[in-house]
């Protein structure tokens, strides 16, 4: 492809992988936060939900920081345009993540403000879980930009359309399904909360399927931004694969195989990000006015990208190793002794 070099192409893929890693990992803990007030009735059940993500949520969130950093480091115009163009939405996500982080650490020590912390955990999970999908819908459908790449539409409200709302809801449902499958395989079994999560995951996944089909129809026949024709076959294959994997997750959930239900749910999240990447390539932000932000016009110098690739080759194996350690240390279902920490 014209204007795409070895390293800039590689970094498009790496940014997609980081987003996928984030969508899978923070996906289940954001989802757990969205389900928190509905699924956890008693104080103990609330503690189970929080404890189930306690040792891992912070590391999971670092995937977002890394994805943001990588976008800045590899394609600064894409980072600058989206973060400044979606300013108020970005700030809402930010405030959500802030109060959520603090609520997760403080709630256990603070019964007096328990209600406020519970609310912070829920709202702080809901805002990012909904708004990420809205942002994705916007970069796909396209935004108006000037020649400098600055968003020229109406702040915040200009970003809300039926299509971007639909992608927001699709994202939210993916997060909630991930949260339900996570809790179902992490909570003590048998327990009320485990049963509730297990029961909830299947309708959530079925609604996800329906909304996915609706978003696909809207994307192809209503929004219809420029997509690379050569990748059409890949997109259809990925869409089909998404359906297959999600149906497999439903199947595992029905059979009560909680771990595999969670793993296949996670795989479906990965496939969905790949599908999104294949729908965008080689663009980062589509334009309804002005010029799209693409790999070719946004990529940093090959020299910088080469150094970042070297840093990644050192860092990524370490990161995967840490994740192995932490998930292994805290593997298996929670027991009573885990709630006293």
């Amino acid at each position: 492809m014209e204007g795409i070099t070895l390293f800039s192409g590689l970094w498009f893929v790496l940014v997609a992988v980081l987003i996928a890693g984030y969508f899978i990992l923070d996906g289940f803990d954001l989802g757990a936060g969205v389900l928190y007030p509905f699924i956890a009735k008693t104080k103990t059940e609330k503690a189970i939900v929080r404890r189930s993500i306690g040792p891992v949520w912070d590391g999971n969130e670092v995937w977002l920081i890394t994805a943001g950093g990588a976008l800045f480091a590899a394609f600064p115009p894409a980072y600058a345009t989206t973060f400044s163009g979606f300013y108020l939405a970005v700030m809402l996500v930010l405030f959500g993540l802030i109060v959520r982080a603090v609520s997760l650490e403080y709630r256990v020590h603070d019964d007096k403000w328990g209600g406020a912390w519970n609310a912070c955990f829920f709202i702080g999970s809901l805002l990012p879980a909904l708004l990420f999908g809205v942002a994705i819908g916007n970069v796909f459908a396209g935004i108006p930009m000037n020649s400098n790449g600055d968003y020229t539409g109406i702040p915040l409200l200009g970003l809300v359309t039926p299509f971007t709302l639909a992608t927001g809801v699709l994202g939210l449902l993916m997060f909630m399904s991930a949260g339900a499958t996570w809790i179902a395989q992490k909570a003590p079994k048998p327990s009320d909360i485990q049963a509730r999560a297990a029961k909830l995951r299947i309708p959530l996944q079925i609604i996800t399927l329906v909304v996915f089909l609706a978003v696909t129809v809207l994307a192809l026949f209503v929004v219809n931004p420029p997509m690379m024709a050569e990748l059409a076959i890949v997109r259809y294959a990925l869409a089909a694969l998404f359906l297959v994997v999600l149906i497999a997750a439903i199947f595992f959930g029905k059979k009560g195989n909680d771990l595999w239900a969670f793993l296949t749910q996670s795989a479906s999240a990965f496939v969905l990000v790949l599908l999104f990447a294949a729908s965008m390539f080689p663009n980062f932000v589509n334009a309804t006015e002005g010029t799209a932000i693409t790999i070719a016009n946004a990529a940093n110098s090959e020299y910088t990208l080469m150094w970042m690739t070297i840093i990644t080759c050192i860092g990524l194996p370490l990161v995967l190793f840490y994740h192995f350690i932490i998930y292994r240390t805290f593997r298996g279902r929670l027991g009573d002794e885990d709630l006293d920490y």
Partner: peptide, 8 residues
């Protein structure tokens, strides 16, 4: 951007 990404 690179040092920020490296930090993460």
């Amino acid at each position: 951007g690179a040092p920020l990404a490296a930090e993460a």
